[in-house]
Amino acid sequence: MRFDVSSTALLSRLQSISKVIASKNSLPILDSFLFNLEGNKLTMTASDSETRLVTSVDVMNAQGSGVFAVSAKILLEPLKELPEQPLTFDINDDNLEIFIHFQNGKYNFIGQKGDTYPQQKPLGQNVVSILVDAQTLLNGISRSIFATADDELRPVMNGIYFDIHPDNLTFVASDGHKLVRLRNLSVKSSEKASFILPKKPANLLKAVLAKESEMVTIKFDDNNAYINCTNFEMVCRLIEGRFPNYNSVIPQNNPHKVIIDRLSFLNALKRVSVFSNPASSLVKLQLKENQMKVSAQDIDFSTAAEELIACQFTGVELSIGFKATYLIEILNNINSTEVVVELADPSRAGLIIPAENEENEDLLMLLMPMMLND
């Protein structure tokens, strides 16, 4: 086999799929990229046995065809240092000795047989398919992934729940303390269905989708999902199990509503939380007529801070405690200028929602309060 390929085109494709390769693999072949040459198209695969990413690059002057594997480390490290130029791959079909010729030199190493690389199982019964715009999918993953859990006892919480309805797609993530529900009304489906996308493939998709602009096809059965976009295909194992009924934990009647500038609130929290107890990261919000006092203290070190922020609030005075790190994360993942904080009482979850939703979106964030000691 022999072919020519652009060094930067090859490197950018390999880098984008290399993130799937685990540091310790059960099968040694998974430390390698799988290459498949057919005509003038070179298809490349990387996998960790749970998730695989496939992409391709156009090559020139191709001779022969076949499958071979190359250690990811051997290929990536030198390619990173090469300026843009054509590379010529020359592969001995008998012993898989590979020569890569470039402007000022050549690399030489032995490849591996591609036929030992794990094959991807096709989808089984009950396949559901939906079409999602790449940026819609990216937005849904980016704004919910921070709320996923790392819980060995409840694996269903360790991913993003895709709740598919005929007139919307809802992204949900929760770790039991915070919850994100992002409903997108532009995605339509012929049926009701759902799946839980694990955190690793979700993060890989984030990186891949940033460069995509077309529609993405998601096909899934009970165990696996195939996600196809213009330049990539991802196949991943889904988390099995039932996601909890997230709507039941969202409090409906919240008499206290605060409208506040998001950045003023966020920056005050960042400053005040420095003075909170590092173990609890507790901040106290005290609401009075059109004013919020954000305060924190660490009794062990005799440090304390408080700031006043103007807001729109009328009603009974109220104090509630939240974990500052969680509240900061939530505010970082909302884009609107102002947010609405809806509260019932100091022991019930607070809702944080954008004052103005983006087009076709309905975003809600929920945060459980912390007990105040006073």
Rank of each mutant, 00 (worst) to 15 (best):
Asp58Glu: 15
Pro86Gly: 01
Thr88Gln: 14
Phe89Leu: 06
Gly64Pro: 14
Phe68Leu: 15
Lys80Glu: 06
Pro78Ile: 02
Lys80Pro: 05
Leu82Cys: 03
Ala72Asn: 03
Val59Ser: 12
Val70Met: 14
Val67Glu: 15
Pro86Thr: 01
Val70Pro: 07
Gly66Asp: 01
Gln63Phe: 05
Lys73Phe: 13
Val57Ala: 13
Phe89Glu: 00
Ile74Val: 09
Phe68Pro: 13
Glu77Arg: 14
Glu84Cys: 02
Val57His: 05
Lys73Met: 10
Gln85Gly: 06
Thr55Cys: 11
Gly66Ala: 06
Asn61Asp: 12
Ser56Asp: 14
Gly66Ser: 08
Pro78Asn: 04
Val67Met: 11
Leu76Ala: 08
Leu79Pro: 08
Val59Pro: 13
Met60Phe: 06
Gly66Asn: 06
Asp58Asn: 14
Phe68Trp: 13
Ser56Glu: 11
Ser71Leu: 12
Gln63Ser: 11
Gly66Trp: 08
Gln63Ala: 05
Val70Asp: 03
Val67Tyr: 02
Asn61Met: 01
Pro78Thr: 06
Leu75Pro: 01
Ala69Pro: 07
Gly64Val: 00
Val59Ala: 09
Val67His: 03
Thr88Arg: 15
Gly66Cys: 08
Pro86Glu: 02
Val70Ser: 02
Phe68Ala: 13
Leu75Met: 15
Pro86Arg: 03
Pro78Glu: 01
Pro83Cys: 08
Glu81Trp: 02
Pro86Lys: 00
Val57Gln: 09
Ser56Gln: 13
Ser65His: 09
Pro83Ile: 12
Lys73Cys: 05
Leu76Arg: 02
Leu79Asp: 10
Ala72Tyr: 07
Pro86Asn: 00
Lys80Gly: 09
Glu81His: 10
Lys73Gly: 13
Val59Glu: 11
Val67Leu: 12
Leu82Trp: 11
Leu87Thr: 11
Ser56Arg: 08
Asp58Ile: 14
Leu76Lys: 05
Pro83Thr: 13
Leu82Tyr: 04
Glu77Tyr: 07
Ser71Met: 06
Ser71Arg: 09
Gln85Arg: 04
Leu75Asp: 03
Leu75Gln: 05
Ser65Leu: 02
Glu81Asp: 15
Gly64Glu: 13
Thr55Met: 07
Leu79Met: 08
Phe89Ala: 02
Ser65Trp: 00
Ser71Tyr: 07
Glu77Lys: 15
Phe68Ser: 11
Phe68Ile: 15
Asp58Ala: 13
Ile74Met: 09
Lys73Asn: 14
Lys73Glu: 15
Thr88Pro: 07
Leu75Thr: 01
Ala62Pro: 11
Gln63Val: 15
Pro86Val: 00
Val67Ala: 05
Ala62Gly: 07
Val70Leu: 15
Leu79Val: 12
